[in-house]
Write a protein that binds this DNA or RNA. Structure first.
Length: 281
DNA sequence: CGTGCCCCCTGTCAGC
DNA sequence: TGCTGACAGGGGGCAC
């Protein structure tokens, strides 16, 4: 489930530890997590120094500096069940259950990419390829430049159901199924409504509530339903604040009506039939 | 180009 | 108890 809030939490956790550290060696346990050959991936990282750790959409982005070769960016997509864990050398506690890639740092600590389902991907891009890739993603919903007017205009061009629209990374970057459903409920918008049928006033509510949900989820360090953990191995607590996701049949926290589930593009959508009417508003 | 469908892989859970 | 099928946070590719 790593969506924007989870990737942001992981990135912040790594940002507090990794800048300035140098990569000593890399172990690729599951090569299907890479697009590149394992030897090529490892040699791109080994000897590089980490400049900073950030995020783009649902991806954790590690900026690398290398005086002898071209600098690069390590882009980690966590898929459905990926974790990026910072493990101090000599750390006790249970080891990662499904280690895929281990990045050993000079001085002894290790960053482990752990992923039971292996839907995740790790790629190293040069700046040009990174920019090209980043351009395929939509705007960052929490960026100051992402305005209600911009969202309203973008919605007008598509007849796809709004829940599906929000999941399309080319339209807005970082929104996944949990936060799409939560934002739509808070905005009072039915998930199946065509994007182009949403009036400007409703689009403004969606804009406001999407940003609120994402900010609150980051403050809670994300949502742990099962697999997600922070870089420190902790669970996120936003699950306590979910109002509709996974709650079919439970009373709507707003009005008490039983919440319903429907399937759009093979993914569950959860909504309140009273607070989120099918008619555009 | 926009849209919907299938698949990647593993783990868990409901139902029989 | 054990098996089977459905389903799960994401995203890429393909057909229409």
């Amino acid at each position: 489930m790593p969506e924007l809030a989870e990737a942001e939490t992981i990135a912040r956790g790594l940002q507090s530890r990794l800048p300035g550290r140098e990569v000593d060696s890399v172990e690729v346990v599951r090569s299907d997590l890479l697009d590149a050959a394992p030897s090529e991936f490892s040699s791109s990282l080994e000897g590089a120094r980490i400049v900073e750790v950030g995020r783009r959409g649902k991806n954790v982005v590690v900026t690398l500096n290398d005086r002898t070769r071209q600098p690069g960016l390590l882009v980690v997509n966590l898929g459905m069940s990926g974790r990026l864990l910072f493990r101090e050398s000599g750390e006790s506690g249970p080891p990662p259950s499904h280690p895929g890639v281990l990045i050993h740092l000079c001085g002894g600590d290790t960053v482990v990419y752990d992923d039971p389902r292996r839907f995740g991907r790790l790629r190293i891009l040069d700046q040009e390829d990174y920019d090209r890739w980043s351009d395929t993603l939509g705007p960052e919903p929490l960026a100051a430049a992402f305005s209600a007017a911009q969202l309203t205009e973008a919605l007008a061009g598509s007849r796809t159901p709004i829940r599906s629209w929000l999941l399309d990374q080319r339209r807005v970057a970082g929104v996944g199924n949990i936060y799409a459903n939560e934002a739509l409920h808070r905005a009072g918008i039915h998930p199946a409504l065509p994007a182009s049928s949403i009036a400007p006033v409703a689009a403004a509510r969606l804009h406001r509530n999407l940003r609120r949900v994402l900010r609150d989820a980051i403050a809670a360090q994300g949502t742990t339903l099962r697999d997600y953990r922070t870089a420190q191995g902790w669970e996120g607590s936003y699950g306590r604040e979910l109002r509709v996701y996974g709650k079919e049949g439970e009373p709507c926290p707003g009005c008490g009506t039983a919440l319903e589930r429907l399937v759009l593009s093979n993914r569950s959508a959860f909504f309140c039939p009273a607070c989120q009417p099918r008619e555009p508003s």
